[in-house]
């Protein structure tokens, strides 16, 4: 007797194993992994039979990224997604080490939607902040040269004193 397999079921069976830099294994659907342009290209050329190493990304970050990709491969309503994205970012931005690594990983894996989401969130953190406040928040040293500082201050000094 012939079994009818729908296209959806067929897709569902295509699973792929991803391995993080600290050797944690994640088994996800191909369409989830495909959200990363880089992984998609690897799958296209090397297939999905053997595990794919994601060398530059640690387990906790990869886990979070795959969570994002899974949610974004479901095709849910826009409002649902916006709410989910917001909660996802609210959580991420609380830990600046995690947020930093998430930013690098989304960029490295080439997940443009996530890159944009993180950039918007980051831009929000810089809004109306003075350079000194930004340095303190992100633990950055002021290593501007005199010339660089003078260039900004003489041309755009107004931006440092909102009324």
């Amino acid at each position: 007797m012939a079994t009818i397999i729908t296209k959806e079921q067929q897709e569902k069976e295509k699973m792929v194993t991803l391995v993080s830099s600290d050797s944690e294994k994640f088994v996800v659907e191909q369409k989830v992994a495909e959200k990363s342009h880089v992984i998609k290209m690897v799958m296209n050329c090397c297939g999905i039979e053997s595990p794919i190493p994601v060398r530059r990304v640690k387990g906790d970050i990869l886990k979070s990224i795959l969570e994002y990709c899974e949610k974004h491969s479901k095709g849910e309503a826009q409002e649902v997604m916006e709410k989910w994205d917001k909660e996802y970012m609210d959580k991420a931005e609380k830990d600046l080490v995690f947020f930093h690594d998430l930013m690098l990983a989304s960029h490295f894996l080439h997940i443009q939607e996530l890159v944009d989401l993180i950039a918007v969130t980051f831009a929000g953190m810089l809004k109306m902040k003075s350079p000194e406040e930004i340095r303190q928040k992100f633990n950055i040293n002021n290593d501007l040269t005199k010339e660089q500082e003078e260039h900004i201050m003489t041309t755009f000094g107004w931006a440092f004193q909102p009324i």
Binding site: M128, K129, S130, P131, I140, L144
Partner: peptide, 10 residues
């Protein structure tokens, strides 16, 4: 914001 961004570090 963009100008202040430029004044953070080199």
């Amino acid at each position: 914001d963009y100008i202040r961004f430029g004044a953070v570090c080199s």
